[in-house]
Every structure is written in C-alpha cells, then in structure tokens.
C-alpha cells in the first residue's frame, strides 16, 4: 500500500511540475500547448527535439523560455555554414600551468549545458551537424581521445526552417534518427496572433520563475520508465512501426501507401520513442498504464522524421503524415 501511495505521490508531483512549466511558458508564449507538452514529454523521456517551422513562430523563444524556467543551464548555438565541430563540443587549448609548463587544457563548448538550443541546425555543414551525434546518443563528448560527460539531464532542441533551403544542409538520416520527436510549429491562430501582439508590444513581461530543477526532471524520468505497458499495447506499437515499412510481412502487412511511397520505414529507435513517449503521456494524463490512445497520440512526432519517402512521393506530393494516418487507421489494436 505504501508503494502505491509513493508512486501516486510521484505521479502527482510530475503532473504538478508539468502544470507549472506549462503555466510559466504560457506567460511568454502564446498557444502551442501541444508543442509545449510534447517538448516536456521529450525532456522527461531523455530525448531531443527537432522543431521545424517557418521563421518568426517563436521556436527559439519557446526553447529559451523552457531553459529559463527549468533552473538548468542553457546554451544556444546558432548554426552557420562556417561553424566547426570544435565550436560546439569544445577544444584542447595550449596553456601554461603555474610552473610555466605547456599543457593542453580542454575548453568546453556550448554543448556542455542541460538544455542546448541548436538554432537553424540545417545551416551548418554535415560535418558540424555530426558533432552532435555522440552527445545526443551517449551524452558525452570525446576530444583528443578523452571522453567528457555532459550534464544530466541533457536535451538538445534543434530548430530548422523548411523554406529558404538554399545554402542549407539537410540533416543526415543518422542524425535525424537521434531526435526523439520532430515537432512541427504551426502558425498561430487569429486569436493567438492578437495575444502575441499584446504580449510583445507592451511592457516586457517579468522573467519566468524557475519551477523545476535537474533532479526533478530525473525523478520524473524514473517515474515514466516505471509505467507498465500491456503486451497488447506494445504489440500494437510494434505493428504500427512495421506498417511503415514497404516490404513488411510480419505484422499486419505492408500498407498500400507505404508500399508505394516509402523508401525506408521507421528504425527501432522509432519504437523506443513511441513507447517511452506513450508512457510519459500516460503519466501526464494521471494514468498508471499506457493506452492505445497514448500510442496514437505520439505516433506522428515520434515516427514522422524516421520514414524516408521515395521520389514518387515527392512527385505525388505525398507526405509522411498521410502514410502514418493510414497506418493508424488500418493497424488494429488487438488482432
């Protein structure tokens, strides 16, 4: 009984923290409730987010606000074509010690922060983009043969602009697969635009309060991983991931759209993201178990960047969203 009470309390704390984060962000950001929830889910799952949207939608502001209210270290890296990997990870600098002896001292790059904003990530060269690979996956940086651990919790929030593609470098598949979620930042509604105008043209709002620290985030992470998933629900997620493959034959069979337009389906990381995000969603919904609806709700952000379409899809203007919608419609919960 005590164990139940304890888990109930922890779950209540997690929900409370999320409520506070949402409320604080709402003071600086208008709308984007779903986006905020998804970023928080990625945070408590230990994942990274790629935010995509046209300029001026508040992507950078959102991430910066999140960094401020979380009582965590925050750094912003503006990706440019001339940015080098060492500019991100840090480099060994030749220095003199007090005795006058020359030695290499590791100067930490901006990646050494809890929350890292990789702004316009697709403007850097693939070489520089790949500097994030190890840090995102292993939460460590290796420079000069020495491994440097990154702080925990660690989260990369990258933004990219879908237009103005000239002079940009699309993220390599290995890089993009390491993002827990790919979130699309939508254009604000009419009412939201009005509120944005009020908020940003009047006197500056007070700085948001810090409502959650690193330990709090890690505790929620632990709590998320304890949420049980039924085999049937897990099997549904597995079949959903398999359904994105054009030559699928193990689950419910390849879907017509996937067979025609998909070049490569989701990787196993997609399934991991799906299950973990569903657990986080269940927790934030005050439910101790994962439901089919949780899987459905997180399928799009967790899988959309992991499905590679073929040339025919480009020609037919087919989107990943349509393919995933078909998968969600056709894959049955319990076969």
């Amino acid at each position: 009984m005590e164990a139940i009470n304890e888990i109930q309390e922890r779950m209540a704390r997690a929900r409370g923290a999320f409520g506070e984060v949402k409320a604080e962000i709402a003071r600086a950001i208008v709308g984007h409730e779903e986006l905020i929830e998804q970023i928080f889910m990625a945070l408590v799952c230990g994942g990274h987010c790629l935010l995509e949207g046209v300029p001026g939608l508040g992507k950078t502001l959102l991430v910066r606000t999140l960094g401020e209210i979380l009582n965590l270290s925050f750094s912003r890296i503006q990706f440019t074509p001339d940015l080098m990997p060492a500019d991100i990870t840090g480099t060994n600098v030749l220095t003199d010690d007090p005795s006058g002896k020359k030695l290499f001292d590791f100067q930490r790059g901006p990646i050494f922060a809890h929350i890292v904003l990789a702004d316009e990530i697709n403007r850097a060269t693939p070489k520089t983009q790949s500097a994030l690979l190890e840090s995102m996956q292993e939460q460590s940086v290796t420079v000069g043969g020495k491994v440097h651990r990154l702080p925990s919790p660690f989260m990369v929030l990258a933004t990219q602009n879908p237009i103005e593609m000239e002079g940009t470098y699309p993220l390599p598949e290995a890089q993009i697969d390491r993002f827990f979620f790919k979130l699309m930042v939508r254009y604000p509604s009419r009412g939201e635009l009005g509120r944005i105008a009020d908020l940003t043209t009047a006197s500056l709002p007070p700085a948001p309060d810090k409502v959650l620290d690193g330990d709090g985030v890690l505790e929620i992470r632990e709590c998320v991983r304890q949420v049980p998933v039924a085999e049937a629900v897990k099997d549904f997620a597995v079949r959903l991931v398999l359904a994105t493959h054009p030559q699928e034959s193990q689950g419910d069979g390849a879907l017509p759209l996937a067979r025609r337009f998909v070049l490569y389906g989701s990787s196993p990381r997609g399934l991991q993201s799906l299950i973990l995000a569903a657990k986080a969603r269940a927790l934030l919904s005050a439910r101790p178990n994962v439901s089919f609806n949780d899987i459905r709700a997180v399928a799009l952000p967790a899988l959309r960047h992991r499905i590679i379409l073929n040339l025919e899809a480009d020609a037919e203007a087919m989107s990943v969203e349509k393919i995933l919608a078909e998968a969600l419609e056709r894959v049955v919960e319990v076969p």
């Binding site: 888990i7 304890q226 039924a230 049937a232 439910r287 178990n289 439901s291 609806n293």
Partner: peptide
C-alpha cells in the same frame, strides 16, 4: 483506457512494481 488489459497481464507476472 487499457487498465483491464494491463491488469490482466500484470496478474500473470511474478513480482509487481509499485506502478
């Protein structure tokens, strides 16, 4: 919301966590 199906499976397991 899949509480029954989860509980049914949990009943078949040996050690049960707090969640």
């Amino acid at each position: 919301e899949e509480r029954a199906i989860t509980a049914w499976e949990i009943l078949g397991r040996g050690k049960k966590g707090s969640a």
